[in-house]
Design a protein around this nucleic acid. Sequence first.
DNA 1: CGCTATCTTGAGTAGCGTCAAGTCATGTGG
DNA 2: CCACATGACTTGACGCTACTCAAGATAGCG
Lengths: 274, 274
Amino acid sequence: MLTQTHAPAHAATPRGHTVLHPVRLPLTRTHLRAVNPVARKDNCENCRLHAVCVPDGLDAGERDEFIGLVFQHKRFAVGERLYRAGEAFTHLYFVKTGAFKSVMMLHDGREQITGFHLAGDMLGIDAIGDSAHPSEAVAIEEAWVCAVPYQSLMQLSRRAEPVQSYVQNLLSRELVRDQGVMLLLGRMQAEERVAVFLINLAQRFKTRGQSPNEFILPMVREDIGNYLGLTLETVSRCLSRLKKAGLIEVNNRQLRILDHAGLEQVIGAGQNHD
Amino acid sequence: MLTQTHAPAHAATPRGHTVLHPVRLPLTRTHLRAVNPVARKDNCENCRLHAVCVPDGLDAGERDEFIGLVFQHKRFAVGERLYRAGEAFTHLYFVKTGAFKSVMMLHDGREQITGFHLAGDMLGIDAIGDSAHPSEAVAIEEAWVCAVPYQSLMQLSRRAEPVQSYVQNLLSRELVRDQGVMLLLGRMQAEERVAVFLINLAQRFKTRGQSPNEFILPMVREDIGNYLGLTLETVSRCLSRLKKAGLIEVNNRQLRILDHAGLEQVIGAGQNHD
DNA sequence: CGCTATCTTGAGTAGCGTCAAGTCATGTGG
DNA sequence: CCACATGACTTGACGCTACTCAAGATAGCG
């Protein structure tokens, strides 16, 4: 299982990003700090993600109310946890920068990564039903998050219909996503799974305004394998095969998609078509 | 506002591939029929599932309002579909008797069963996010369902907090369940998957007031296999092995759990404990 | 009573996991 | 600045689990 202790604090941003605070840890978790309302509002309005995080269709007052709920942000080093399994549920979280993985754990130590969360994604919604987090969220890149107190959000959603459907839709879409993963895990072969993974990742980068055809994989091979129900070796072999087939270029974390259509044709090539 | 649930009325083979299920058709779909309010109320109050379907914590008026939303019920024969993938989303459904499976389909014909729905379970929540059903729901036993118009439910949930958290919790718990299946599909071996499946099924029968240790499997081996990411042969072999080990008795659909603790120990026996 | 769907069991095989060795990139300490 | 340590990745050899194909048993239903 993953050692929970210090991620090597040198902020392992694989890309050449300048690391702002190469803080050496003991990683004490400070609490999320509220900032004053004006600063809050500024932070959301100026945040390039506000179109993603803030619900559409609110009038000015409601919008301010929503933004007023958002607690400003906290930094997480690679390997740090936003919450742990079993922890009480109080807030929903937005990833502002960086990336997390959600991990579900079995008592015998086995772990399954159930999702990766990039900038703009929400975290913690699976905890609503039992008021406790069933999984844990681990930063896989240096990350900053914002937090929204769930109870307040629910109160607001009773007054503002857009907030209500916003939350419902988030939950429901996550359901559909998970069902897609079930399809992948249950019915697809290794190479297909990797292809689907790359295509999805590309799509997500695209909606974030980044290049869909050239990006840095935010996670290590082992995490990809875990997510896809494979070993890291199999992931590596599949990537090599896709490379040899001329569909992608890959060098460690650096990935380029050369033939998007070809990648999509990998899905369903030579399968047990029920 | 009710009778507009038009289903594409014939059970055509979606994209040309053969129908696997023993459907003796023609399965004409009649529409959901409303009954008068009094009858509606009677139907929920007298329904032995009302503790399951009707949210707790409502005052008398709200409770009547909720029940007033419930459209009375429609019968489905084995193989009939409650909704199809792509169909517009208008209602949530409760299984009153019988059972359904949710099936996610891939363009190439592969299918993944993402869940089984027994009496008291809700169906259709994965359609909220996109106002269309991403999966289809097929009756695996003769079944009766009730329907709740989603928009009306949302309106009510803005006035009645218990309804709001009721829906949120349903969605969130379903997320957790799906993540558990991802864990199963990604990290467990065949025999473990079958054991988990039986234990879960037993638990669900128990909460329904039925015997957890002796029941009839509502689905065929192929469906179990599909759900668990296995072939029907592998499911059969696993059941035989569990039988030989003295943990269960099994005769076709008839199943008896002889050693519940032993079944639980199958999970995690000799695994790649990361 | 016979048809068909369902289930069981066996034999052979393939895909992926396991184990192992080796390369490469990055960071560290001398 | 260099030697070294470490983590990430790749590639190969081998083995096992679960899939495929096949045959036969059983049960349900008209």
